[in-house]
Simulated scan of single mutants.
Amino acid sequence: MADFKPKAIIFDLLTALLDSWAIWDAAIPEDENSITTGQAWRKHYLEITYGCDAYKPYEDLVRQSAKDVGLSPSAPQTLLERIDEIVPWPEVPEVLAQLKGLGYKLAVVTNCSNELGHRAISNCEKAVREMTDMKDFEFDQTVTAEESGYYKPNPKPYRDTLQKLDVAADEALFVAGSSMDVPGASDVGMRVAWHNHVGLPRWNERVPWREGKTLGEALGDVLN
């Protein structure tokens, strides 16, 4: 595979960098575990979000997805209350610190509200500072769906992030958390690496530039 050295790397947040799957399982009340799994609920939520286009309150989409799969209102309420418990995948802090040390601009674009998105971003940055030698780590730019006015895969959130970073699409690498981001980021001109940590199936026929079970595997030579 040919070398590619971007100027900037843009990440999906809640799947590519953070293990948000665990909290969806934990949010389901014990007496409702027979109704559905956290993964099934989360997959339905992703379908709703990626089909939404113009921004609607993120919290409403979480509640709608829970209702659609038969869960009571307590499940999404618990999920939203526990957003601060979402932590990065084990290798993520070291990889982010390494990328920053190599001089890459780093950004996040997330299908989330401003409040919850920035809380999750702050938790990720805090983990990097606490678990590595990079004590001043911060992302260079962040964009939420609420800020952009649209949910991915609408092109606007990706383009807003590129504009904030002041880089062209062909100078950036997008790291997807689900295959739904692959066509969205590709269509604005970015190469896409898919960090498929939980082994999700492809939901479309678009093939990423790279795919890996860990963030390091997904990035490949970009880390060198």
Rank of each mutant, 00 (worst) to 15 (best):
residue 60 D to P: 04
residue 63 R to L: 07
residue 63 R to K: 14
residue 63 R to M: 06
residue 64 Q to P: 09
residue 65 S to N: 04
residue 66 A to M: 15
residue 66 A to V: 13
residue 67 K to G: 15
residue 68 D to T: 14
residue 69 V to H: 01
residue 70 G to V: 01
residue 71 L to E: 15
residue 72 S to C: 01
residue 72 S to G: 13
residue 72 S to I: 10
residue 73 P to V: 04
residue 73 P to Q: 13
residue 74 S to A: 15
residue 74 S to Y: 09
residue 75 A to L: 08
residue 76 P to K: 10
residue 76 P to L: 11
residue 77 Q to I: 12
residue 78 T to K: 06
residue 79 L to K: 01
residue 82 R to Q: 13
residue 83 I to T: 09
residue 84 D to K: 09
residue 85 E to N: 04
residue 85 E to G: 04
residue 86 I to E: 05
residue 87 V to C: 09
residue 87 V to F: 08
residue 89 W to T: 08
residue 90 P to H: 06
residue 90 P to Q: 02
residue 90 P to S: 08
residue 91 E to R: 06
residue 93 P to T: 14
residue 93 P to I: 09
residue 93 P to M: 00
residue 95 V to T: 15
residue 95 V to R: 11
residue 98 Q to A: 12
residue 99 L to Q: 02
residue 99 L to K: 11
residue 100 K to S: 15
residue 100 K to H: 14
residue 101 G to K: 11
residue 102 L to D: 07
residue 102 L to H: 14
residue 104 Y to C: 07
residue 104 Y to E: 11
residue 104 Y to W: 00
residue 106 L to I: 03
residue 108 V to L: 02
residue 108 V to W: 01
residue 110 T to I: 08
residue 111 N to S: 14
residue 112 C to H: 12
residue 114 N to L: 13
residue 114 N to W: 03
residue 114 N to S: 11
residue 118 H to A: 08
residue 118 H to Y: 10
residue 120 A to C: 12
residue 120 A to R: 07
residue 120 A to H: 04
residue 122 S to A: 15
residue 123 N to M: 14
residue 123 N to G: 15
residue 125 E to W: 00
residue 126 K to P: 00
residue 126 K to Q: 13
residue 126 K to R: 11
residue 129 R to W: 03
residue 129 R to L: 09
residue 131 M to V: 05
residue 131 M to N: 12
residue 132 T to F: 14
residue 134 M to H: 11
residue 135 K to P: 10
residue 136 D to V: 01
residue 136 D to P: 09
residue 136 D to W: 00
residue 137 F to T: 00
residue 140 D to K: 08
residue 142 T to G: 06
residue 142 T to P: 03
residue 143 V to Y: 09
residue 144 T to R: 04
residue 144 T to F: 01
residue 144 T to Y: 05
residue 145 A to T: 03
residue 145 A to C: 05
residue 145 A to I: 07
residue 146 E to P: 12
residue 147 E to C: 01
residue 148 S to W: 04
residue 149 G to M: 05
residue 150 Y to R: 04
residue 150 Y to D: 02
residue 150 Y to C: 10
residue 150 Y to K: 07
residue 150 Y to Q: 10
residue 150 Y to G: 03
residue 150 Y to V: 09
residue 151 Y to T: 13
residue 151 Y to S: 10
residue 151 Y to H: 04
residue 152 K to F: 05
residue 152 K to Q: 02
residue 152 K to W: 06
residue 153 P to K: 03
residue 154 N to I: 02
residue 155 P to K: 06
residue 156 K to Y: 15
residue 156 K to A: 12
residue 157 P to R: 05
residue 158 Y to Q: 00
residue 158 Y to V: 14
residue 158 Y to I: 08
residue 158 Y to C: 13
residue 159 R to A: 10
residue 159 R to H: 10
residue 160 D to N: 08
residue 161 T to A: 13
residue 162 L to M: 06
residue 162 L to Q: 09
residue 162 L to F: 13
residue 163 Q to V: 14
residue 164 K to L: 15
residue 164 K to E: 12
residue 165 L to K: 06
residue 166 D to Y: 00
residue 166 D to G: 11
